[in-house]
């Protein structure tokens, strides 16, 4: 029998067509994600000022960056904001999820209320909280109007406290999402196991502490990844709420990058700061993606 294993045109097309269809997207990602990352990385080692320039200056930009007081402020702010934001959102989200999990009435309505801020733009959130926290017309003025004349709440104008107002607004916007993540996790827990725990004599509190919460690890993980990367990327909210002020008191790396690159014409330093942001996010995301995709068959 003469073997003719050569593939027919049709069979070859069957193999090639899927790759052809995928390739435009891959090309876009290759250029506009990876190519651009490469380009920005190069700029961070260059003497670019107002426009890209290709003179190699080594780690000069990074040295300058780390010696800048504003970068120092930005990183400190990000640390304060990031930690508080993640911790408060997680705790509040878990607490709300447990409350909602008690077979309550109108659960759908309450869930909708808790989650709607997630549909808003950070700019809208920023505007609402900016004026609500403004001592001239917001909470403080309202309290004075209601007769509590000694009431003071002027964090948003206070260089030391302004960063916390960003935490307040960001938690308001995102905690509902964390609640939803945990609620989905709670609903995914095997009901028979909870019955077994009850039969074993565990009370509500013990059931949550010993059985339920330990099983929410995946929900914690995905909440952490989403919150961490939102914290590092946060830009809109800071711009809308405080615009980095008072002065530079609420600068964060994202506003720093924008201002050095496009306003102060220090593109090399801006690129270096973007690089630091990328590396920080990558440190969180890459292990996560790796562990999520690794077990995939083949």
């Amino acid at each position: 029998m003469a073997a003719h294993h050569a593939l027919s045109t049709k069979a070859r097309l069957r193999v090639l067509l899927p790759r052809i269809v995928l390739s435009p997207s891959l090309a876009l990602v290759a250029i506009f994600v990876y190519g651009f990352i490469f380009f920005t990385t190069y700029l961070s080692f260059s003497d670019s000022k107002m426009l890209p320039s290709y003179g190699w200056v080594g780690f000069e930009n990074y040295k300058t960056l780390f010696s800048l007081r504003m970068w120092d402020i930005a990183v400190t702010n990000l640390a304060i904001f990031g930690i508080l934001y993640i911790v408060i959102c997680s705790v509040l989200g878990l607490f709300l999820a447990i409350l909602l999990d008690q077979h309550i009435r109108a659960e759908g309505f309450i869930r909708t209320v808790y989650l709607y801020p997630m549909a808003l733009s950070f700019i809208v959130t920023g505007v609402a909280w900016k004026w609500f926290l403004d001592p001239g017309i917001g909470l403080e003025a309202v309290m004075h109007d209601w007769g509590w004349t000694s009431f003071q709440f002027r964090w948003i104008k206070d260089r030391d406290m302004a960063i916390y107002t960003i935490v307040i607004a960001a938690v308001w916007q995102t905690s509902g999402f964390v609640m939803a993540t945990f609620l989905a996790g709670l609903r995914g827990i095997d009901g028979e196991m909870l019955k077994a725990a009850r039969v074993d004599g565990a009370g509500t509190f013990a059931v949550y502490r010993r059985i339920v919460i330990p099983q929410l690890r995946p929900a914690f993980l995905s909440a952490f990844v989403v919150l961490a990367h939102m914290a590092i990327k946060s830009y809109d909210l800071v711009v809308a709420l405080t615009n980095g002020g008072p002065g530079t008191a609420t600068a964060v790396p994202s506003t720093f990058m924008y201002s050095y690159t496009f306003t102060r014409n220090q593109m090399g330093i801006g690129a270096a700061s973007a690089e630091i942001m990328l590396l920080t996010i990558a440190a969180v995301i890459i292990p996560y993606l790796w562990s999520e995709l690794r077990e995939d068959p083949r």
Binding site: F32, V33, G35, F36, I37, F39, T40, L43, P52, H229, I232, K233, Y235, P253, S254, M257, Y258, T261, M267, G270, A271, S273, A274, E275, M277, L278, I281, I285
Partner: peptide, 11 residues
Amino acid sequence: FIPFQIVLIPM
């Protein structure tokens, strides 16, 4: 997940 700051200049 990338911070879009990394693509602003080349884009």
